[in-house]
């Protein structure tokens, strides 16, 4: 494991609320032990004093009703012991329940991971066979045969994306999404992304524009993962914009760099904004295809880069998605 990966794992561990709870409980329990020892020492000393020095002095015993006092001290000690035991048991049970939940979540992510992998091999066969058909390896196709073939190819591509998204979300939830960071020029990443989306925007009759300063803006980031985020934002913008255009704007403000993806689409209702980055929530998707995972994945990737992603939008007034990342140099 390389040092940045180690650092990332360590950060994830620190951020894990369960780990935090477990650590703070352990610390609390040890403090409780010290407090308990301190609290018990005074009655114990009194007991020892009474037993060893004063026990046989009947005048003292009769005077302060020594037997009752001794009884009370023993009861208090037993009460403290029992209380401590109850608290310990309750905390241990809570921790166990949390651990079981944790294990269940890991199992769930592993299951998703396994299932997604199991999908890839049959998908490879279907795709291979369809491509062989399309390329005429089993004979020339009639024009009537081409249409269902194109349809099947499109659906295979869709399945491929869903499997990819499921694997990503599985990795994110199990804390296994590792970044391969390098020094990148953001202009290059955004240029590649807008170029990749050009065909889709032309097909939909939209203008796709990139506005970026000439001075290169550098970030220390994972090229593939960052491209994935911007690709998701731009394709979403195109899909949800019936007319007009999509602008990608890159700006730098001191130590932070900001990418804005703005569209003139139908916008997002105020009450839906909160659900937008939640997995499987397909806000206003209507007939648009998608796994409902893209924005949840984008958010996780941006946050792993110590960045922030948010949206400003109103119904029928377009949407503006922002990604802010720490800039280098």
């Amino acid at each position: 494991m390389t040092p940045p990966e180690k650092e990332q794992r360590a950060r994830q561990r620190r951020l894990d609320p369960l780990e935090e709870l477990r650590a703070s409980t352990e610390a609390w329990l040890s403090q409780f032990n010290i407090a308990f020892a301190l609290m018990s020492i005074i009655p114990l000393l009194i007991c020892c004093y009474l037993i060893t020095v004063k026990f046989f002095s009947l005048s003292i015993l009769a005077g302060i009703n020594g037997m009752y006092f001794l009884f009370a001290v023993i009861l208090a000690l037993l009460g403290l012991l029992a209380g401590r035991q109850v608290i310990r048991t309750v905390i241990r049970r809570l921790l166990d329940a949390n651990e079981r939940m944790d294990r269940f979540q890991t199992m769930q992510s592993e299951f998703v991971h396994h299932v997604a992998h199991e999908f890839r091999s049959p998908l490879a066969i279907i795709k291979g066979a369809l491509d062989n058909l399309r390329d005429g390896l089993y004979g020339t196709l009639t024009s009537e045969q081409v249409e269902p073939l194109t349809m099947s190819n499109r659906e295979v591509a869709r399945l491929r994306r869903v499997v990819g998204d499921l694997l990503d979300i599985g990795q994110i939830e199990s804390g296994k999404l590792a970044l391969h960071r390098e020094l990148l020029v953001l202009q290059e990443v955004l240029r590649d992304v807008t170029q990749a989306c050009q065909a889709l925007s032309t097909e939909r009759g939209l203008a796709l524009e990139l506005q970026a300063p000439e001075q290169p803006i550098r970030v220390h980031a994972d090229r593939d993962r960052l491209s994935q985020v911007f690709l998701n934002l731009v394709t979403n913008a195109i899909k949800f914009t019936p007319r007009g255009g999509v602008q990608v704007r890159l700006t730098r403000n001191g130590a932070a760099t900001q990418v804005e993806v703005a569209d003139s689409g139908r916008g997002i209702a105020r009450e839906d904004l909160g659900r937008l980055f939640v997995k499987f929530e397909r806000v206003g998707a209507g007939d648009q295809e998608g796994s409902g995972l893209g924005l949840a994945i984008a958010k996780a990737i941006v946050e792993l880069h110590d960045g922030r992603i948010w949206v400003e939008s109103e119904s029928n007034r377009g949407s503006h998605f922002f990604v802010r990342l720490p800039a280098e140099g």
Binding site: H117, R120, K127
Partner: peptide, 26 residues
């Protein structure tokens, strides 16, 4: 069919000359 990004190091260790993730383009 495994995740290609985590596989890169293993592939290098095994001495393979390249790898491709399923499903792939011909």
């Amino acid at each position: 069919a495994r995740d290609s990004r985590t596989l890169a190091a293993e592939v290098r260790t095994a001495g393979a000359d390249g790898f491709l993730q399923k499903p792939f383009e011909f």
